[in-house]
Nucleic acid binder design. Structure first.
Lengths: 352, 352
DNA sequence: CTGAAAGCGCTTACAG
DNA sequence: CTGAAAGCGCTTACAG
């Protein structure tokens, strides 16, 4: 009574094998596999048991060929230079797709607006993806969004800045993360905290800045104007900001940079000025990119929930259980995922 | 009699459409598509024309279902922490696969040796990949290589250190790159050049070091023993090495670090000691990882031909035109790809 | 709630 | 060198 022995060894079992073992037709097996409601619980159970017993795994290619669905999800991004952000997201999305029997098709959307539209259209019409994920900053390209809508393909945006009522999206709470990170510094005894703002074109810059401001205010701490520097997210811009901050009259005891590259620059400048991090200066960054754990001291930073974002996006796209713009309410479209504060070696309690 | 009009607009054309337009059978079209020799040049041409006219693209799923091939290539790696190396390779492999109608299945091989073997076996038996690519350092796992051989699936290793006569592999000439990079420094007038060796367990470390030594020797330059430091490829190890090098009696005018992380550390230490890079000290790295272009000054480094390696590996695996261990000659198994010297801002001509 | 038939777009063997 | 037939493992209508 062990059908396992055979199917376990060489031959891969098919829907036909499962049907026979369960004593039903292929059709019924197919229904159970696709979560069709119209199957009796009893039958459903029988089929599931048989499938498990045989270690049955549906053949995606056959599925794809027979059905209208492609079992492909598209991932579109604009700029790969964001230090691993794209690859991190891709790795996670890949994993989620595999678990669900889907495949990920990744495409870089570069060039002129016309070329971007062509790439997007090809992905939908040639590859026939069942859904598309748009990474920032590409997800703010309104023409693309409209095209996708016209093509009638579901899409999810990741951390968008604009048109927040138009389509579902996943994001993290940048404001809250900056708020909490600032509080962390304050709890460590810091009062004189400087801030380097991120690139003005990126929406998250504003939110991070506001979170910082509100945390300071709620602790009744004042911020001298010379403690605020405008950066551009680049290491180089962090260098000039840090120089200004660390050579002003009343040097801060902590600097909050809006991303890790700029935080790394702060540490470098501090180094060259003979200021010890974290003994004389605490530094925090944002993003938890590789550089945060490459340089020494490792940077205390905010870790974006990239893996969870990818998983959530794939889940929404593959189950089809989300309202593609059906609701106007932001709360129905927005999926906020939890961030994490990574406390490392670039911060310490202030010495009094 | 114009099947074009219909198939050109919305409906995707199939092998049947191509066959009709060319006036042959589906079988012949299939043969042409798969580069079967046994088709007359005349017919071949007709078919190719028809296919082009219809913008025909074979349906991979149908192909996969009907044939013994899976049109999947597996990519196995062990350690994702190598700062983007895996993702860079993956991106390139993805692209090459897409062009050939293949799909890439990426898997991290972690855990115990038994778990690694299981993951590898699953990839071959479940996903039925047509070939496997093994990234370093995973490609040096001999048990895995034997398992793959037993499973009878072709595999290509990337920059392996061991068993170089066992299977085809792609690599770059680490020795030559280090040799040329050293020469570049010498041409810029440097004579006092220090070297930070890479991790002792990695084969490339030895080759890079040897390339450096031979370049120095061939220029009749001597290397005082205090100019050689052992590193571990980590930023932190670069820090200690740099401190030793920059505080010794006769400070070098250039430091060659065996990777970018350590080169970044050298720059950081130089900064903190008030030594200007590149005016007083030239620094070069190796790999061209993101950190090389993140920090300031940007690091002069050796760019590995990751894209070309990925393309070569995929090409070998998909055309099946390589000798899977048929030859004992290293030259037949080894595919050496060209590196590139990236001259940036961390080096300059020595002032006399 | 369940099933028999047809077909998705290719390729594999078998003829000729 | 070329083709007619069967089939890969699923799903989509269509019945009942």
């Amino acid at each position: 009574m062990s059908p396992i022995s055979k199917s376990n060894s060489k031959t891969k079992s098919t829907i036909q094998d499962v049907a026979e073992l369960a004593g039903v037709s292929k059709m019924t097996v197919s229904r159970v596999l696709n979560n069709d409601e119209k199957v009796s619980d009893k039958t459903r159970l029988k089929v599931k048991e048989a499938a498990n017993k045989l270690h049955y795994r549906p053949n995606i290619s056959a599925r794809r060929l027979a059905s209208a669905k492609s079992y492909f999800i598209g991932l579109l991004y604009e700029n790969p230079s964001q230090g691993g952000y794209v690859s991190q997201f891709m790795m996670s999305a890949l994993k989620s797709c595999r678990q669900r029997g889907y495949h990920l098709v990744v495409d870089e959307c570069e060039g002129t607006q016309v070329e971007k539209l062509t790439i997007t259209r090809d992905l939908v019409e040639e590859t026939r993806v069942d859904g598309v994920i748009l990474l920032p900053p590409f997800c703010n390209n309104i023409e693309i969004l409209n095209e996708l809508k016209a093509l009638n393909v579901p899409y999810i945006r990741v951390s968008p800045d604009v048109e927040l009522t138009q389509s579902p999206f996943v994001c993290m709470d940048d404001y809250q993360a900056a708020f909490e990170m600032t509080n962390l510094l304050i709890e460590q005894g810091h009062r004189d905290i400087a801030f380097i703002i991120g690139h003005p074109d990126v929406g998250a810059s504003r939110l991070r800045y506001q979170g910082f401001l509100d945390a300071m205010r709620s602790n009744k701490l004042t911020i001298p104007p010379e403690y605020i520097e405008q950066g551009l997210f680049s290491y180089k811009s962090g260098l000039s900001a840090a120089k200004a901050l660390l050579t002003c009259n009343n040097m801060p005891t902590a600097i909050f940079a809006s991303n890790d590259d700029m935080a790394a620059a702060v540490i470098s400048v501090a180094n060259s000025l003979g200021i010890q991090v974290p003994q004389q200066l605490s530094v925090v960054g944002y993003d938890d990119t590789p550089i945060a754990t490459t340089i020494w001291p490792n940077i205390t930073t905010v870790k974006q929930p990239i893996e969870a974002m990818a998983e959530a996006a794939i889940a929404m796209l593959t189950t089809g259980k989300f309202d593609q713009g059906l609701s106007d309410k932001l709360s129905d479209l927005r999926h906020v995922l939890d961030f994490e504060l990574k406390q490392r070696d670039s911060t310490s309690r202030v010495k009094s």
